Each structure stands twice: as C-alpha cells, then as structure tokens.
Amino acid sequence: MEIVGWLLVILLFVIGMAGTVYPVLPGALAVYGAFFIYGWLISFEPFGVWFWLIQTLIVIAIIVADYLVSALGVTKFGGSKASVIGSTIGIILGPFVIPAFGIIIGPFLGAVIGELIIKTPWKPALKAGVGSVIGFFSSVVVKVVLQLVMIVVFLLWVFAF
C-alpha cells in the first residue's frame, strides 16, 4: 500500500505543478490533497499542527497571489477592472478555444476585449492585454515557487522530523 500511496502522492504533485500553468487543473489543491493521500495510505504520524498550519497558509497565499499578481499585471499596464475580468475569463476559456496557444492568447484577448467593451481606445486596450500576459506569467512563477515550498516542507516533515 505504501508504493501505491507514494505513486498517488507523486501523481498529485505533478498534477499540481501542471495546474500552475493550466488553470483547469487543481494546482495547489492537488498538492495539498497529496498530503491527505499520504496520511490515509501511509501515515498521518509525521504531520502535526504546525505542518497543517504552514501548508494551509501557503495554499491561501497561492490562491490570493494568483488573482492579485495577475490583476496587478493588467493594472500596471493601464488596464481597468473590465480587463481584469476579461483576462480571467480568457485564462479559463483560452485553452479550450485555442488548445495549443490559448493559455497565452486567451488572457490577452480577454483583457483587450474587456477594455474595448468599456470604450477604451485600441492602443491602451492592447497595452492592458500585454499586461495580462505578463501578469499571468508572473503568477505562474509565484505559484511554482510556493508549490515547490509546499512539497519541500512535506518531504522535510516526512523524512527529517
């Protein structure tokens, strides 16, 4: 059962890391779920209150940072709330509409369309679109780093404590 447990933990870690780029996948929640799988199939013994507190705070930070960093990218490039909403919709729909490049084109087009809907001229709308792509990539970097921290903390707790 231990081998199955570790295989599922690793699978959830991979899904979680893929979720940093592909928003349809659960991301940080998959990594967090891996801890429960480990506990149920192997042992909850290594985990105490501090482990769960640290991991839960990191998950909350990832969720908050994901939205804030993306929104900051849009607003730093002159985008409004409409482009933030548009880029969010584009991040979700883009990969389905344009499978190969939708993850990049989606937020860009979403931000541009959001700005054009509120009658923003083309040039500032395009600038907001660029900001949405930069915000998306910045958000991915933040999520990758924080999820790697989650995995390292888990490994330290399991093997070092």
Rank of each mutant, 00 (worst) to 15 (best):
K123S: 07
Y67T: 07
V49K: 09
A28G: 10
F159Q: 11
S138F: 06
K119R: 07
G86T: 11
Y32T: 03
L29I: 14
G102S: 03
P95A: 05
K119S: 14
V14R: 06
V152H: 03
A160Y: 12
L29A: 03
P121Y: 05
P26K: 11
A160V: 13
L148H: 00
S132I: 01
I151A: 11
V64A: 15
V112A: 08
D66P: 03
V142M: 03
V74Y: 07
A18H: 07
P95C: 13
V97T: 14
A71I: 01
T20E: 10
L8Q: 02
A125F: 03
V24P: 07
I117T: 07
W52F: 14
K76M: 09
G86L: 07
V24I: 12
F159S: 06
W122D: 02
S70I: 02
P124W: 01
A160P: 03
F161V: 06
E115A: 12
V9W: 12
G78C: 00
G131M: 00
I98E: 12
A28H: 10
G78T: 03
V64M: 07
G5F: 08
S132W: 01
I92F: 03
T20A: 15
F47E: 05
V84S: 04
G33L: 03
I103D: 01
A125R: 01
F44I: 08
I10H: 08
F136W: 13
L29N: 15
M150W: 11
A28W: 05
I58D: 04
G78K: 07
V14Q: 06
P46D: 08
F161A: 12
V152I: 15
I42L: 14
L93M: 13
F136D: 05
V141P: 05
F96I: 14
L12K: 05
L68V: 15
G110V: 02
W157V: 13
I98P: 06
K76H: 05
V84Q: 08
A82Y: 09
V21H: 02
I10W: 09
E2S: 06
L29Y: 13
E2K: 04
V97M: 09
A30F: 01
A100Q: 11
S83E: 01
I118Q: 14
L7F: 10
K127C: 02
V112D: 00
P124A: 13
S80K: 03
S70R: 15
I92A: 02
L146D: 12
A125S: 14
S83G: 09
A71M: 06
L41N: 00
E115L: 03
S80C: 08
L156Q: 05
P99N: 10
V141T: 10
G73W: 00
V64E: 11
M150Y: 01
L29K: 09
L57V: 12
L68Y: 14
K81W: 13
I3N: 10
I62K: 04
P124L: 10
P107C: 07
W157Q: 14
